[in-house]
Amino acid sequence: MIVGRRETLVGRVLLVLLMAVTVVPFISLFVTALHPAGTYPSGLSWPDDPQWGNFADAFRSAHMGELLLSSCLIVAGVVPLSLLFGTMAGFAFGHLRMPGHRIGFLVFVLGLTLPFEGIITPLYYQVRDLGLLNTRWAIILPLIGLFMPFSVVWMRAHFVTMPDDLSEAARIDGAGTWQLFWRVHVPLAMPALSSLGILLFLWTWNQFLLAIVLVDDPAKRTMAGALGAFQGQWGTDIPLLCAGALLILVPTLAVFLVFQRRFVAALLQGSIKG
Protein backbone atom coordinates (compact mmCIF):
# COMPACT_ATOMS: atom_id res chain seq x y z
CA MET A 1 0.00 0.00 0.00
CA ILE A 2 1.37 3.40 -0.90
CA VAL A 3 0.91 5.97 1.82
CA GLY A 4 2.55 9.35 1.96
CA ARG A 5 4.48 10.35 5.07
CA ARG A 6 2.39 13.47 5.50
CA GLU A 7 -0.80 11.50 5.35
CA THR A 8 0.50 9.15 8.00
CA LEU A 9 1.34 12.06 10.25
CA VAL A 10 -2.06 13.70 9.79
CA GLY A 11 -3.67 10.35 10.47
CA ARG A 12 -1.75 9.88 13.69
CA VAL A 13 -2.53 13.36 14.95
CA LEU A 14 -6.19 12.93 14.15
CA LEU A 15 -6.32 9.58 15.86
CA VAL A 16 -4.65 10.89 19.00
CA LEU A 17 -7.07 13.80 19.05
CA LEU A 18 -10.07 11.51 18.74
CA MET A 19 -8.73 9.31 21.51
CA ALA A 20 -8.22 12.34 23.71
CA VAL A 21 -11.83 13.45 23.23
CA THR A 22 -12.94 9.92 24.08
CA VAL A 23 -10.90 9.70 27.23
CA VAL A 24 -11.28 13.20 28.69
CA PRO A 25 -14.74 12.61 30.21
CA PHE A 26 -13.37 9.59 32.06
CA ILE A 27 -10.47 11.61 33.39
CA SER A 28 -12.76 14.43 34.43
CA LEU A 29 -14.95 11.92 36.26
CA PHE A 30 -11.92 10.51 38.02
CA VAL A 31 -10.45 13.86 39.04
CA THR A 32 -13.80 15.13 40.29
CA ALA A 33 -14.26 11.99 42.35
CA LEU A 34 -11.16 12.90 44.32
CA HIS A 35 -12.44 16.26 45.53
CA PRO A 36 -13.84 16.60 49.04
CA ALA A 37 -17.40 15.32 49.26
CA GLY A 38 -20.07 17.99 49.02
CA THR A 39 -17.96 20.50 47.07
CA TYR A 40 -18.49 21.76 43.54
CA PRO A 41 -15.05 21.46 41.94
CA SER A 42 -14.58 23.35 38.72
CA GLY A 43 -13.17 21.89 35.53
CA LEU A 44 -10.19 19.58 35.53
CA SER A 45 -8.37 20.74 38.64
CA TRP A 46 -6.35 18.22 40.61
CA PRO A 47 -7.46 18.50 44.24
CA ASP A 48 -4.96 19.71 46.83
CA ASP A 49 -5.78 16.78 49.02
CA PRO A 50 -7.10 13.85 46.97
CA GLN A 51 -9.91 12.14 48.83
CA TRP A 52 -9.31 8.50 48.00
CA GLY A 53 -11.75 7.70 50.75
CA ASN A 54 -14.58 8.87 48.49
CA PHE A 55 -14.41 5.56 46.68
CA ALA A 56 -14.77 3.65 49.91
CA ASP A 57 -17.64 5.91 50.97
CA ALA A 58 -19.40 5.48 47.65
CA PHE A 59 -18.83 1.73 47.77
CA ARG A 60 -20.42 1.56 51.19
CA SER A 61 -23.29 3.97 50.72
CA ALA A 62 -24.25 2.52 47.35
CA HIS A 63 -24.04 -1.05 48.70
CA MET A 64 -21.84 -1.81 45.73
CA GLY A 65 -21.33 -5.43 46.77
CA GLU A 66 -25.05 -6.09 46.66
CA LEU A 67 -25.36 -4.29 43.32
CA LEU A 68 -22.61 -6.41 41.78
CA LEU A 69 -24.27 -9.56 42.98
CA SER A 70 -27.64 -8.41 41.67
CA SER A 71 -26.28 -7.60 38.23
CA CYS A 72 -24.48 -10.93 38.11
CA LEU A 73 -27.67 -12.79 39.03
CA ILE A 74 -29.56 -10.98 36.29
CA VAL A 75 -26.85 -11.73 33.75
CA ALA A 76 -26.83 -15.35 34.90
CA GLY A 77 -30.55 -15.49 34.28
CA VAL A 78 -30.60 -13.76 30.93
CA VAL A 79 -27.51 -14.79 29.02
CA PRO A 80 -27.46 -18.64 29.17
CA LEU A 81 -31.17 -18.97 28.42
CA SER A 82 -31.03 -16.42 25.61
CA LEU A 83 -28.06 -18.23 24.11
CA LEU A 84 -29.79 -21.60 24.31
CA PHE A 85 -33.13 -20.42 22.95
CA GLY A 86 -31.51 -18.27 20.28
CA THR A 87 -29.27 -21.11 19.13
CA MET A 88 -32.09 -23.63 18.98
CA ALA A 89 -34.29 -21.27 16.99
CA GLY A 90 -31.39 -20.18 14.80
CA PHE A 91 -30.70 -23.85 14.08
CA ALA A 92 -34.35 -24.40 13.20
CA PHE A 93 -34.66 -21.37 10.94
CA GLY A 94 -31.21 -21.63 9.39
CA HIS A 95 -30.71 -25.36 9.09
CA LEU A 96 -33.89 -27.40 9.56
CA ARG A 97 -35.87 -24.85 7.48
CA MET A 98 -39.24 -26.29 8.41
CA PRO A 99 -42.33 -25.12 6.54
CA GLY A 100 -43.18 -21.57 7.53
CA HIS A 101 -39.63 -20.76 8.51
CA ARG A 102 -39.53 -17.72 6.23
CA ILE A 103 -42.43 -15.91 7.79
CA GLY A 104 -41.42 -17.02 11.24
CA PHE A 105 -37.97 -15.63 10.72
CA LEU A 106 -39.35 -12.42 9.25
CA VAL A 107 -41.37 -11.84 12.41
CA PHE A 108 -38.15 -12.04 14.40
CA VAL A 109 -36.30 -9.75 11.97
CA LEU A 110 -38.96 -7.08 12.36
CA GLY A 111 -38.37 -7.17 16.09
CA LEU A 112 -34.76 -6.09 15.57
CA THR A 113 -35.61 -2.43 15.29
CA LEU A 114 -38.19 -2.33 18.07
CA PRO A 115 -37.40 0.40 20.60
CA PHE A 116 -37.97 -0.86 24.15
CA GLU A 117 -40.12 2.20 24.86
CA GLY A 118 -42.60 0.78 22.36
CA ILE A 119 -43.69 -1.97 24.72
CA ILE A 120 -42.66 -0.73 28.14
CA THR A 121 -46.13 0.39 29.23
CA PRO A 122 -48.01 -2.91 28.73
CA LEU A 123 -44.94 -4.75 29.89
CA TYR A 124 -45.27 -3.02 33.25
CA TYR A 125 -48.87 -4.18 33.68
CA GLN A 126 -48.04 -7.65 32.42
CA VAL A 127 -45.16 -8.06 34.85
CA ARG A 128 -47.34 -6.69 37.63
CA ASP A 129 -50.09 -9.19 36.86
CA LEU A 130 -47.54 -11.98 36.92
CA GLY A 131 -46.68 -10.76 40.42
CA LEU A 132 -43.06 -10.25 39.46
CA LEU A 133 -42.76 -6.50 39.98
CA ASN A 134 -39.69 -5.60 42.04
CA THR A 135 -38.08 -8.96 41.55
CA ARG A 136 -35.15 -9.71 39.29
CA TRP A 137 -37.45 -11.84 37.15
CA ALA A 138 -39.11 -8.59 36.09
CA ILE A 139 -35.92 -7.76 34.23
CA ILE A 140 -34.80 -11.27 33.29
CA LEU A 141 -37.89 -12.61 31.54
CA PRO A 142 -38.69 -9.56 29.37
CA LEU A 143 -35.01 -9.18 28.46
CA ILE A 144 -34.85 -12.77 27.20
CA GLY A 145 -37.87 -12.02 25.03
CA LEU A 146 -36.43 -8.74 23.83
CA PHE A 147 -33.08 -10.34 22.99
CA MET A 148 -34.70 -13.12 20.95
CA PRO A 149 -34.79 -11.23 17.61
CA PHE A 150 -31.10 -10.45 17.69
CA SER A 151 -30.06 -13.84 19.05
CA VAL A 152 -32.12 -15.73 16.52
CA VAL A 153 -30.97 -13.63 13.58
CA TRP A 154 -27.38 -13.88 14.73
CA MET A 155 -27.40 -17.64 15.19
CA ARG A 156 -29.36 -18.25 12.00
CA ALA A 157 -26.70 -16.32 10.12
CA HIS A 158 -24.22 -18.84 11.43
CA PHE A 159 -26.32 -21.92 10.71
CA VAL A 160 -27.15 -21.02 7.09
CA THR A 161 -23.45 -21.20 6.35
CA MET A 162 -23.27 -24.78 7.63
CA PRO A 163 -23.35 -27.23 4.71
CA ASP A 164 -26.30 -29.63 4.61
CA ASP A 165 -23.89 -32.47 3.88
CA LEU A 166 -22.64 -32.23 7.43
CA SER A 167 -26.05 -33.15 8.76
CA GLU A 168 -26.59 -35.77 6.09
CA ALA A 169 -23.44 -37.48 7.22
CA ALA A 170 -24.47 -37.40 10.85
CA ARG A 171 -27.93 -38.68 10.08
CA ILE A 172 -26.55 -41.59 8.15
CA ASP A 173 -24.59 -42.38 11.27
CA GLY A 174 -27.95 -42.62 12.97
CA ALA A 175 -28.03 -39.34 14.89
CA GLY A 176 -31.42 -37.86 15.81
CA THR A 177 -32.11 -34.20 15.30
CA TRP A 178 -31.35 -33.33 18.91
CA GLN A 179 -28.02 -35.19 18.83
CA LEU A 180 -27.25 -33.61 15.52
CA PHE A 181 -27.84 -30.21 17.08
CA TRP A 182 -26.06 -30.80 20.35
CA ARG A 183 -23.14 -32.97 19.26
CA VAL A 184 -22.39 -31.64 15.80
CA HIS A 185 -23.70 -28.10 15.40
CA VAL A 186 -23.34 -26.49 18.79
CA PRO A 187 -19.59 -27.22 19.06
CA LEU A 188 -19.11 -25.76 15.59
CA ALA A 189 -21.10 -22.68 16.55
CA MET A 190 -18.87 -21.80 19.50
CA PRO A 191 -17.24 -18.68 17.99
CA ALA A 192 -20.63 -17.23 17.04
CA LEU A 193 -22.03 -18.21 20.43
CA SER A 194 -19.28 -16.59 22.45
CA SER A 195 -19.54 -13.32 20.54
CA LEU A 196 -23.28 -13.33 21.11
CA GLY A 197 -22.68 -14.05 24.77
CA ILE A 198 -20.44 -11.02 25.10
CA LEU A 199 -23.00 -8.75 23.46
CA LEU A 200 -25.84 -10.05 25.59
CA PHE A 201 -23.80 -9.63 28.74
CA LEU A 202 -23.06 -6.03 27.86
CA TRP A 203 -26.64 -5.17 26.94
CA THR A 204 -28.01 -6.78 30.07
CA TRP A 205 -25.51 -5.12 32.35
CA ASN A 206 -26.23 -1.71 30.82
CA GLN A 207 -30.00 -2.04 30.58
CA PHE A 208 -31.62 1.02 32.09
CA LEU A 209 -35.24 1.49 31.04
CA LEU A 210 -36.52 -1.92 32.20
CA ALA A 211 -34.63 -1.56 35.44
CA ILE A 212 -36.07 1.80 36.42
CA VAL A 213 -39.62 0.97 35.37
CA LEU A 214 -39.98 -2.57 36.65
CA VAL A 215 -37.81 -2.66 39.75
CA ASP A 216 -37.88 0.01 42.44
CA ASP A 217 -35.24 -1.43 44.72
CA PRO A 218 -31.81 -0.48 43.33
CA ALA A 219 -30.33 -3.57 44.96
CA LYS A 220 -32.37 -5.73 42.58
CA ARG A 221 -31.54 -3.79 39.44
CA THR A 222 -28.88 -3.94 36.78
CA MET A 223 -25.76 -1.85 37.19
CA ALA A 224 -27.06 0.89 34.91
CA GLY A 225 -30.37 1.02 36.75
CA ALA A 226 -28.58 1.18 40.07
CA LEU A 227 -26.48 4.04 38.77
CA GLY A 228 -29.70 5.89 37.95
CA ALA A 229 -30.88 5.41 41.52
CA PHE A 230 -27.47 6.40 42.78
CA GLN A 231 -27.82 9.66 40.90
CA GLY A 232 -31.25 10.15 42.45
CA GLN A 233 -29.82 9.68 45.90
CA TRP A 234 -26.39 11.27 45.61
CA GLY A 235 -26.96 13.71 42.75
CA THR A 236 -26.63 16.33 45.46
CA ASP A 237 -23.00 15.43 46.07
CA ILE A 238 -20.98 15.62 42.88
CA PRO A 239 -17.66 14.07 44.00
CA LEU A 240 -19.43 11.14 45.63
CA LEU A 241 -21.64 10.69 42.58
CA CYS A 242 -18.56 10.62 40.35
CA ALA A 243 -16.83 8.13 42.63
CA GLY A 244 -19.90 5.90 42.56
CA ALA A 245 -20.23 6.19 38.81
CA LEU A 246 -16.59 5.15 38.37
CA LEU A 247 -17.00 2.18 40.67
CA ILE A 248 -20.02 1.09 38.71
CA LEU A 249 -17.98 1.32 35.50
CA VAL A 250 -15.08 -0.73 36.81
CA PRO A 251 -16.52 -4.23 36.29
CA THR A 252 -17.54 -3.62 32.67
CA LEU A 253 -14.29 -1.89 31.91
CA ALA A 254 -12.33 -4.73 33.46
CA VAL A 255 -14.22 -7.36 31.50
CA PHE A 256 -13.80 -5.26 28.39
CA LEU A 257 -10.07 -4.87 28.76
CA VAL A 258 -9.59 -8.58 29.39
CA PHE A 259 -11.69 -9.68 26.42
CA GLN A 260 -11.17 -6.59 24.31
CA ARG A 261 -10.39 -8.31 21.01
CA ARG A 262 -13.46 -10.51 21.19
CA PHE A 263 -15.48 -7.53 22.34
CA VAL A 264 -14.49 -5.31 19.46
CA ALA A 265 -14.99 -8.08 16.95
CA ALA A 266 -18.36 -8.97 18.46
CA LEU A 267 -19.60 -5.41 18.54
CA LEU A 268 -18.52 -4.75 14.97
CA GLN A 269 -20.12 -7.93 13.66
CA GLY A 270 -23.08 -7.29 15.89
CA SER A 271 -23.80 -4.00 14.24
CA ILE A 272 -23.31 -5.39 10.75
CA LYS A 273 -25.75 -8.21 11.27
CA GLY A 274 -28.15 -6.25 13.40
Binding site: H101, G104, G118, Q126, L141, I144
Partner: peptide, 28 residues
Amino acid sequence: RAAWLGWLFAAPAVVMYAAFVLRPLTLT
Protein backbone atom coordinates in the same frame (compact mmCIF):
# COMPACT_ATOMS: atom_id res chain seq x y z
CA ARG B 1 -41.22 -35.15 10.75
CA ALA B 2 -38.53 -32.46 10.53
CA ALA B 3 -41.22 -29.88 10.05
CA TRP B 4 -42.61 -30.44 13.50
CA LEU B 5 -39.19 -30.81 14.98
CA GLY B 6 -38.11 -27.51 13.53
CA TRP B 7 -40.89 -25.66 15.27
CA LEU B 8 -40.17 -27.60 18.43
CA PHE B 9 -36.64 -26.23 18.31
CA ALA B 10 -37.90 -22.74 17.68
CA ALA B 11 -40.59 -23.02 20.37
CA PRO B 12 -38.75 -21.60 23.40
CA ALA B 13 -37.65 -18.54 21.43
CA VAL B 14 -41.10 -18.12 19.92
CA VAL B 15 -42.80 -18.41 23.30
CA MET B 16 -40.53 -15.86 25.00
CA TYR B 17 -40.75 -13.52 22.04
CA ALA B 18 -44.52 -13.81 21.85
CA ALA B 19 -45.02 -13.43 25.59
CA PHE B 20 -42.70 -10.53 26.26
CA VAL B 21 -42.56 -8.69 22.95
CA LEU B 22 -45.45 -9.50 20.63
CA ARG B 23 -48.11 -9.54 23.34
CA PRO B 24 -47.05 -6.21 24.86
CA LEU B 25 -46.73 -4.77 21.37
CA THR B 26 -50.29 -5.80 20.56
CA LEU B 27 -51.43 -4.34 23.86
CA THR B 28 -49.65 -1.08 23.11
